[in-house]
Structure formats: structure tokens, C-alpha cells
Write a protein that binds this DNA or RNA. Structure first.
Lengths: 218, 218
DNA sequence: GAGCAGATGATCGAGTTCCGATCGGTGACC
DNA sequence: GGTCACCGATCGGAACTCGATCATCTGCTC
């Protein structure tokens, strides 16, 4: 069992906040159960109707336990999103190593497929909207980690391919992330199975976008 | 004074809901004042920190008055969004009739400019995200009017130009709406003035998208 | 067409309900 | 016996309700 050290750790001053940090074994399972419950609730009644009591109920825990691991409702949702993103990252890696696309542009296509797959299988995924970071609650101090997913995505690609030494690449990938996020979300907005027209168009738009800019890699 | 009978009227069963429908003159002003207040609050402290009490305060009305016109907090925000969309529609019409672009594809460019302008001038605009309809609270009965803005946009264009008789046009416009919404929102996500790179890229992506599909109109 | 009176709409704000979050206490693990 | 996980009654504050009160409209009378 890998110990789950959060990078954040303690700030400068005393941080008496209970923070998420499992010490004993069972805690990890608890956290997962809580997030599963939250995902289910989010799928059923939607994002902003979710109450912490519902999450506790569904996870067969008490209110207190919820707040034992998450300082508040918003952080709980963020944790759900973070877990989903991590799972998505794994899904990309699996798919790319499985399909071994010729070029990194094609690998982006695989990532889109993986994204669509997540919408179909991962509870709560369709509500999360994570291309952009936290919208709304303007974060205290810490930089609002905008576009961080594009960076991470670049890392994944860089592990398998030789990326063009283009300083604009990060920007282009961020555009791609935004485009895909918008169109795939639209595809699943009403159609629970995912509207194929929008899915196909997302693939096409991205392919056109990248082929125009990186003809060598297409 | 035109009596303002709601189209909805009575459903099968008794509908005791108070619903928004101004009868007397002052009501309209009240509603506007409430929405102005909501927009200001949203700009200042953000979307989900908004409380109905703040809105009432700022509009110099009582809590009761807020709930006289809006069944709940979420509907209040939706109304704010609806008004912003209407204003945006007007802004498009004004700009297009003012600039009189040669082709409808160029008119789409003007619409993007108008969109950016709204982000800079219309209070509360940047939080609203309206390309997609209501996300989250799954609406009872009524169809979730997805993509309705693209339809409306097509109407605006059709009033000034002869649009291609392409049954896929609506779909393409919807894609454009999604793309623009995503990229322009990203442009304003952290940069209050709007990140020019994303704005320019939005224009480029849309132009490329439409020129590929409608070379005659470009 | 001025004045009045009843009806109906608009406003108010104290009271209620609901929900996010706390805290002191109890039991499980080391 | 000391730490950690868990519970759930309780608190505080925000969403929302409701009966009373004020403003405006309608239409009748003279």
C-alpha cells in the first residue's frame, strides 16, 4: 500500500485543520467510499444539489467522518475531480501503450477516445468539467493552476514520443484540451450514451487543428 | 396596460407557485434591479458565494421580494444568464448591422468580437457559461433547450445574409458556439482583460473551421 | 373627471427549515 | 494507555415561507 503523501503538506504557520491524511489502513478505503458516494450523488441529482449528509448516508458513514477527511464540501468535490483526472491519466497511458499510435497527433486521438470512455464508465465524470481549473471560488494565494492538465498531458506524450521543440506546443495542447472538453461535454449533455456527431466532430476539429500546425507529425 | 397572461397557465393540477410575471409597472424595474444586484455580487465575490440576502440588500429590497420573483437562488442566476444572452443577441445585431461584413462567415467573426466585448462590459457575464444550457439540475419535464443559442444565432445571420441551404449548418454553428464559448471563457479565466492569445486563437480556429466547410462564403 | 372604495398586486421582515460544519465523547487499533 | 477513527447531537448561518401591510389599479357615483 503506497503511503499517500500529499505534496501540499504543512504551510508555514500551524495548520490545525484536520486535512486528508490516512494513517491507518482502513482510512483509504473510507475516502474512496466517500468519493464513490459523492460521484453517485452527483450523477443522480447533480452537482450543486449534493449535500454532505447525502454523501455520508450513501457511504454509510456519519457526517463527522466526511469532515474528518474533507475540510468542506468544495474540497470534497475537488477531490472527486482529482481522482477522476488521475484515473483518466491512467486510462490514457493504458490506451496509448496498448494501441501504440504512430504519431503523437494520433495519440491525441487515443486520448480523446479515452476521454469518451471515461464519460461512459466513470461515475460523476460528466459533471466535473476539468479542462479549466476551479472556476468560481477565487482561490486564496495559490496560483489557480489553470491549464495544468495540458501540461500533464504534454508529459504523458513526451514519455512516448519526441515532441516538436516548439515553445508554442503547450499553448496548442491547452487549446486542444479546451476544445475537446467543450465538445465532448456537449455530446453527453443530454444524450447519456454520448451524441456521436459531436464526438466525431471533436476528433475532426482536433485533427485539423493539429495537422495544420504540425504537418510533420501527421 | 396589457394583461400579461403566462402561456404556461394552469397545468392539470393546481400550480400555487408564485412565478415571475410582472403585472404592475414597477415590477419590471424591480426585477432589473435585482438582476443588476446579482450581477454585481457575482462579479465581486463569485458565483457560489452569492447569497439571496446580499442580492436583496444591494437591490434595496427585502428577502421576500427576491422570492416573489424567483422561486429559488438557482433560477435567479438563470434569469441573470437569460438577460445577458438577450443583451448579447442585441449586441450582435448592432455590430453586424454597423460593420456590415461581406460574408456571413465574417459576421461570425463580428459576433466573436461582440462576445469579447460583453465579457469586458457586462457585469456578471464571465461567470455565466451559457453555450450549454442548464447543467446540473436535471430539469423536470421541459426539454432542456440545448443548443438553442445556435438556432437563434442562425436566425440573426439569416436576417442579413443568404445562408447556405445546408441542413448541417445548424450543427456547425453549434460547434462554433461551443468552441468560442470554451476559448473565450478560458481567455478571461484569470486575465481580467482577456488573454489575447486565446481570443486570437478562437477567431483563428473558427475561421479555419468555417472556411474549410463553406469555402464559398469565405 | 374627481373622489372614493374595494380588489389585487407588491413589499416587507420575523420566523422556519434546511444544510454545512463543529465538537466532545466512545470505541477500535497499536 | 495513547493514538486514531468514528459517531451524531448541536450550532450557525443561509435559503426560503407566510401573514400583515402598503401601493396601485379598477370602476362606480355623482
Amino acid at each position: 500500500m503506497p503511503k499517500n503523501k500529499t505534496a501540499a503538506a504543512e504551510q508555514t504557520s500551524a495548520a490545525p485543520l484536520v486535512r486528508t491524511e490516512p494513517i491507518q489502513e482502513r482510512s483509504a478505503a473510507r475516502i474512496d467510499a466517500l468519493l464513490d458516494a459523492a460521484a453517485a450523488v452527483v450523477d443522480e441529482i447533480g452537482f450543486d444539489r449534493l449535500t454532505t449528509a447525502m454523501v455520508a448516508d450513501r457511504a454509510e458513514a456519519s457526517i463527522g467522518t466526511v469532515y474528518r477527511y474533507f475540510p468542506d464540501r468544495i474540497v470534497l468535490l475537488q477531490a472527486l475531480r482529482d481522482r477522476a483526472i488521475e484515473r483518466y491519466r491512467q486510462a490514457i497511458v493504458e490506451r496509448v501503450t496498448g494501441e501504440t499510435p504512430e504519431t503523437w497527433v494520433e495519440a491525441v486521438g487515443s486520448a480523446i477516445d479515452a476521454f469518451v470512455g471515461m464519460f461512459r464508465t466513470e461515475p460523476g465524470f460528466r459533471i466535473i468539467r476539468f479542462a479549466d481549473a476551479e472556476r468560481g471560488p477565487v482561490n486564496r494565494d495559490e496560483p489557480p493552476r489553470v491549464g495544468f492538465f495540458a501540461l500533464r498531458f504534454a508529459d504523458i506524450l513526451a514519455a512516448e514520443y519526441t515532441l516538436p521543440d516548439d515553445e508554442a506546443l503547450t499553448f496548442h495542447l491547452e487549446i486542444v484540451v479546451e476544445l475537446v472538453d467543450a465538445l465532448i461535454n456537449r455530446a453527453f449533455l443530454i444524450d447519456m450514451a454520448g451524441d456521436e456527431r459531436f464526438i466525431a466532430e471533436a476528433r475532426t476539429v482536433v485533427r485539423e487543428y493539429l495537422e495544420t500546425r504540425y504537418p510533420a507529425a501527421a
